[in-house]
Design a protein around this nucleic acid. Structure first.
Lengths: 323, 323
DNA sequence: CTGAAAGCGCTTACAG
DNA sequence: CTGAAAGCGCTTACAG
């Protein structure tokens, strides 16, 4: 009763169609030297036609552990955050598509990653993160999700995204715009803060920072902080640029409970555009699936010994009902 | 510079030590017929001695897609919940250990699971869940994380856990004990509720239910609900049995903001014992890693065509500072 | 009950 | 530049 599994073409099928040996196909597919450019092109075209997907199993069998990719989360308190969850999920799919096998390493077990995996993706980077050094010293190729540095890395355009959101509020006539952040000291927040400051500077407005202590439950913490602040001075802000959708949710709920109208009296923006969570929020969308796919692509380059590079992934302002 | 990977023994090594063919080793390892009990025992002993780990790659290569296991989440609003994240992470590791490859299917893409995976694990079951039927009709062996039914399933002792927590509060002298739940109508909550009622019945106390609407942010929602309720009647409860650690966190924060002493004036218990999140909370611990491992074991039985069974995983009351 | 051999899909020396 | 062949670790007919 089970549906016929879509028979995916293998290397032999491509070789047959191209009229060459499987060795040549393998070389073309893996960007290996020792094959003419013309043949490579022809083989790549055919492999696209037949929607070739490499077999994770076969590759892994040969390379030993090389196809096993360890995914490492940075700190305990990051591990349960929705953004990382989604990234992790997309990474799983993207790796599988490339014939690689994901295996998860919680923060406290990352030390054993080099023994079990042939490559790594590092999420949730933090200050003085020892993991890049760990990977390097064990000869494990890796990609970071984070700001440009010495190794391969991918990051969304944090600064630009927050700039867009802030400018959007400015253009909507807001004048008392605060930035609500999780942990303003982190390098990550610093980037986003930069975008906020730039937009305010351009408009000649004053900056106002709300620094929520890093927390397991940003929505609740944001809610409490804003509730207290506005209890004393309800008109303190007419715009809130939040660093994450979660913080924005907490702020929205606080405004609702205080009877302040959104977006009439206060406009709110988020960041991430998380499914379900973002809802009717005006926010900055990151392409999480795209970031995952790019990480895997870069990991391929790292495994091939190519020189490290950083890729900045585009973001987009999504205007909804809170601004 | 990289550390020597711990050379794991393969099937050939075991065959050599046992003085038999690799075919016999394979039969012994996979519980296949056509081998004497004595030989099987001997081989299994040796394979334990050498800490044999089957090669995911080799098995998958042979079985086609059979080693690819689709992990499906039930509903969008479950996908970002910490409990499921952790379960998912442990599942990744447990599957890998058994030579299987996890691939993630978000709620809205579960329909394509049968095409891409040879087996499935279903998380976050809900009422009228169509997924078991979907898997069955496509001939995909699967295991549910959920209450006993017609198919393979694993679940923690929900009822017993809440019973333990409630009885613990009763024995601590509490008399106005409420049950705080996420979605009391769900089959899942019904089990937990049962444990609560039983403990109260035994003590001759009245039940009191607090039904928080199912929500993306249980901590915040619980916080707001409890804050309002206690604003009118601060002494309404002297004990709160929460269905999850997240709800308990929200309640604790509300009590703190209201100036009610924990555990002096109100005792609070959670459920799950999530890392970091549980903190100093008295809670009921589930062995998430154990549940993951058991799911994978049952999946093996399902793939082998054995008759379905349900496994109930033990829980444990962990008394900390909130009771 | 047990073993020798083929083969899963791929990569990589080794020849040419 | 290209191909024939060996081999990664395992399972499974096929013989005995």
């Amino acid at each position: 009763m089970s549906r016929e599994p879509s028979k995916t073409a293998n290397i032999r099928e491509i070789a047959r169609r191209a009229g060459v040996s499987i060795a040549s196909v393998s070389r073309a597919l893996n960007d290996k030297p020792g094959i003419s450019e013309a043949l490579r092109e022809r083989i790549l075209t055919i492999s696209r036609d037949v929607e070739y997907r490499p077999s994770a199993a076969a590759r892994q069998l040969i390379s030993g552990k090389a196809a096993v990719v360890g995914i490492s989360l940075g700190r305990r308190d990051f591990e349960l955050r929705p953004y990382y969850i989604l990234l992790y999920q997309h990474l799983t799919v993207a790796l599988h598509r490339q014939g690689m096998v994901p295996i998860f390493f919680p923060h406290d077990r990352t030390a054993s990653l080099p023994e079990q995996a042939g490559a790594a993706i590092l999420l949730g980077e933090f200050a003085d993160d020892p993991r890049p050094e760990l990977m390097t010293s064990h000869g494990v190729p890796f990609v970071r999700i984070g700001p440009a540095g010495e190794s391969f890395s991918v990051a969304p355009e944090d600064r630009h995204g927050i700039y867009l959101a802030t400018r959007h509020l400015v253009e909507g006539g807001r004048r008392r715009i605060a930035f609500v952040g999780d942990d303003l000291q982190s390098p990550h927040s610093q980037h986003r803060l930069g975008g906020y400051r730039q937009a305010l500077d351009e408009a000649g407005l004053e900056a106002s920072l709300i620094d929520i202590p890093p927390n397991l439950d940003p929505a609740l913490t944001g809610y409490r902080w804003l509730s207290r602040r506005l209890a004393h001075e309800p008109r303190a802000y007419d715009g809130l640029v939040c660093e994450t959708d979660e913080l924005a949710r907490g702020c929205l709920t606080a405004l609702e409970d205080l009877g302040l109208e959104v977006p009439g009296e206060v406009a709110v923006t988020g960041f991430d555009d998380l499914p379900t969570l973002a809802g009717s929020l005006t926010t900055v969308r990151q392409d999480i699936a795209g970031i995952a796919a790019m990480s895997v692509e870069l990991l391929g380059e790292a495994l091939a010994g190519k020189p490290p590079r950083h890729v900045s992934m585009p973001v987009e302002l999504v205007v909804r009902q809170t601004s």
